[in-house]
């Protein structure tokens, strides 16, 4: 179980004049699924890096299970909080896909036989079995992205932070990632997703934290926040298709993928029965 408490967090990069984050207050609890949304340059990635101790607050504090991140080592935090960065090239260093995935397990002292099983499992989850001995840098954009997630997820951190997980992914891969992450949440783990893909966020996350110019302009139920035109405009977002559809219809739809939504529509409208 992991809980993060952010209090009066201000952050600026060394030698920069302006604060990137201003007066952020948040609590992230066990089992939450949170989307961090906002325009380019809003401070989303900087906030994420403060949550896992890669960056330390300029003022205020971030506490993980009650301990200030200033007093915790990055490695110690990483065991609990996994971070998948937006550009996989920044994350990779090994010569094969397998080594890339094994690295974390070895550092955290997983026994060999358990490591082998976890590696196989995660390769399968992300459809990377055939790439086991390939060079990570030779993979396609979408494949790199999947490997980046796999190599963090493999040690089962309690909270997983993903920076733009759906970039370069096709429809099937997006659905797959969505399913994998949903399963994690149902097992009681927490996820934080930084994304511009509002449709992905809406299908996965209960809560949204919306940033604009370094400040939180909304924090709460994602569906409610993304129905608010003012918030959407301020944070350069767009309304998720599903929410737009529900608003037009005047009732909510539980179906998740488009095939189900279509079947639902054909059931509702007699015009489709002919």
């Amino acid at each position: 179980m992991v809980e993060i408490v952010v209090e009066n967090l201000f952050f600026k990069y060394p030698e920069a004049e302006n604060y990137v984050l201003k007066n952020i207050n948040l609590i992230i609890k066990e089992g939450e699924s949170i989307a961090i949304l906002g325009e380019n340059g809003a401070g989303k990635t900087t906030l994420a890096k403060n949550l896992n101790g890669l960056l330390k607050p300029t003022q205020g504090s971030v506490k993980i299970d009650g301990v200030d991140t200033r007093n915790l080592s990055v490695a110690k935090i990483a065991r609990k909080i996994g971070f998948v960065c937006h550009n996989p090239d920044h994350q990779f260093f090994a010569e094969t896909v397998e080594e890339e995935i094994r690295f974390g397990l070895r550092n955290f002292g997983f026994p060999e036989n358990e490591a082998e099983r976890s590696i196989r499992e995660v390769l399968k989850t992300f459809g990377l079995e055939d790439y086991r001995f390939r060079n990570p840098f030779q993979l396609s954009g979408g494949e790199k992205k999947r490997l980046a997630i796999a190599s963090i997820m493999v040690w089962n951190p309690e909270l997983l932070i993903l920076d733009e997980p759906t970039i370069g992914m096709d429809y099937a891969q997006r659905l797959n990632i969505q399913r994998v992450l949903k399963k994690l949440v149902s097992e009681g783990r927490s996820i934080v997703v930084i994304t511009h893909d509002v449709d992905f966020a809406a299908s996965l996350c209960e809560r949204a934290i919306i940033l604009s110019k370094g400040e939180v302009i909304g924090d709460g139920c994602l569906r409610k926040l993304l129905s608010d035109s003012e918030v959407i405009e301020k944070a350069s977002l767009k309304k998720p298709f599903l929410i737009e559809l529900e608003e037009e219809l005047g009732f909510s739809i539980m179906e998740e993928d488009f095939d189900e939504i279509c079947d639902f529509l054909t059931r509702v409208f007699p015009k489709c029965h002919s």
Partner: peptide, 20 residues
């Protein structure tokens, strides 16, 4: 083919024949 067909078109392709 798993490409990102825009949602509105995905619905259209699926129901167009049935709904005329």
């Amino acid at each position: 083919i798993p490409i990102n067909i825009p949602p509105l078109l995905r619905i259209y392709f699926r129901i167009k024949d049935r709904c005329g």
